[in-house]
Amino acid sequence: MSGVTSINLVENALLVSIQDDVTDTEIVELQDTLSNRIAKENVKGVILDISSLEIVDTFVGRVIAQLAGISKLLAAETYVVGMRPAVAVTLVELGMYLPETRTALSLTHALTQLRRA
């Protein structure tokens, strides 16, 4: 597992913090580790904290969409939290609206919505 990206269990969800200097290899590894842990720990949700991401490209956008797809198949909802305005604008310009993910302003909001679900 990479040292840059951490996965922590918070309540009934896995919290994943993606750092700004994450490499393509690390993010592919993350996909693998994360899917294993979702299956093993039987969580209800995955929270992707991308507040430290300042730049996104189509690759990162696609990985986020794939993570959401994988989680959904394993019966967990994906919440993307803390997206910066510039990142949101870029994703929209790239045409990546991430319809398979849920979004929340912050970790607290995501947890509240998860508890309600």
Binding site: V81, G82, M83, Y97, T103, A104, L105, S106, H109
Partner: peptide, 12 residues
């Protein structure tokens, strides 16, 4: 609609 999509991505 693009503005709305960006707003949603922000979590609102």
């Amino acid at each position: 609609l693009r503005a709305a999509a960006a707003v949603r991505l922000m979590g609102a």
